[in-house]
């Protein structure tokens, strides 16, 4: 690429979260401010909250057309555009369990290269994942085993919806704005949403008093999408800065969340929320069901096939 120059760049970024939420703050502090500082101001950003510039469902379109030079997006929204590789990129249930496993999978086992190949076809440079705290389930009845899913009305979508349905639940998709009222009146019994602080921000603890553990989505991630030609214009040193800032923002998000989630969990418990725990042997059986579901992705296309093979190989390395 071009060598370092004095040319400067100004980008618009849309976050996948509201201003002030941990993942937004992480991008603000450890991506925007860090990259501005490391580049000596040669690249600067305007950070916007989710939905400010475009609906997240059109994220790939928005970034590839240059409406925004960059955005934090969530892969699950784009599986209808690019197949199950988008789900594998976001993280699938019954696979990896810790952020470090996820980091190694992307950066040491080469999954990031596969993601870059797949997203390049959408006109988007996949800068890197932004690891997220768990996406948890809150419910109106305790869930302590597979049998509790029988007849349960769950707000979920994608592979998770199929997973819960396999265990006897019925899955409904509701807009984010409808979940609170739907839980309050019993249109759904359970909803899979965010980590404790995110769930509390949505006031779900007021209407769903049980918090399922372990998390169905223990290590999901969003990702940094960059407009392809904006990326190619950058000199190599700025590219390197952005790649490292993305990693820094990832771990910052996990770190801030760990603090806020611990507090939110206690606050919710003080407000009457109970943790309902699924025992390990039962959870392993449930994970096996989920794993069968994403194994089928291999049939879909070449990207998904490579993704499933990489994930299986890594799980084998981990002894699972």
């Amino acid at each position: 690429g071009p060598v370092a120059s004095e040319e400067s760049y100004h980008w618009q970024i849309q976050s996948n979260l509201n201003a002030g939420e941990p993942g937004y703050v992480a991008v603000e502090k450890k991506f925007v401010e860090l990259a501005e500082e490391m580049s000596g101001g040669r690249i600067t950003f305007d950070l916007h909250p989710v939905g400010a510039l475009f609906p997240i469902s059109e994220g790939l379109e928005a970034v590839s057309t240059g409406l925004a030079q960059m955005a934090v997006l969530t892969g699950g929204y784009y599986s209808g555009k690019m197949g199950p590789i988008a789900n594998l990129e976001m993280g699938v249930p019954g696979s990896l369990r810790t952020p470090m496993e996820r980091y190694n999978f992307f950066y040491k086992k080469g999954f990031i290269d596969l993601a870059r190949e797949a997203y390049a076809e959408q006109g988007v440079f996949y800068l890197g994942p932004q690891f997220s705290p768990p996406w948890d389930m809150m419910s109106k009845k305790p869930i302590t085993g597979m049998e509790d899913f029988e007849g349960l009305k769950v707000r979920a979508f994608g592979i998770e919806a199929k997973w819960y349905e396999k265990m006897g639940a019925s899955a409904t998709f509701l807009d984010g704005g409808e979940i609170y009222s739907a839980l309050a009146t019993g249109v759904v019994d359970a909803a899979r949403w965010a980590s404790p602080s995110g769930n509390m921000n949505n006031s779900f603890h007021e209407v769903a008093k049980y918090y399922m553990q372990p998390s169905p989505m223990p290590v999901p991630n969003n990702f940094f999408a960059v407009n392809m030609s904006a990326w190619k214009e950058l000199p190599d040193d700025l590219k390197a800065i952005l790649e490292e800032a993305a990693i820094a923002a990832s771990f910052e998000y996990l770190a801030i969340s760990a603090l806020e989630d611990a507090k939110a969990m206690q606050d919710m418990q003080a407000a009457g929320v109970e943790v309902s725990r699924i025992p390990p042997e039962e959870w392993r059986k449930m994970e096996a069901i989920a794993r069968d579901l994403w194994q089928d992705y291999a049939e879909a296309d070449a990207y998904a096939k490579r993704g499933v093979e990489m994930l299986n190989a890594y799980l084998e390395e981990l002894g699972r």
Binding site: L53, F54, S57, E58, G66, D175, E178
Partner: peptide, 21 residues
């Protein structure tokens, strides 16, 4: 702003007409 920003018009159009609420 810039001409690429115009892409928000069709996106907002589709988002609003296909909004469940």
């Amino acid at each position: 702003w810039n001409v690429d920003g115009l892409n928000l018009l069709p996106m907002r159009a589709f988002q609003n007409t296909s909004s469940f609420q």
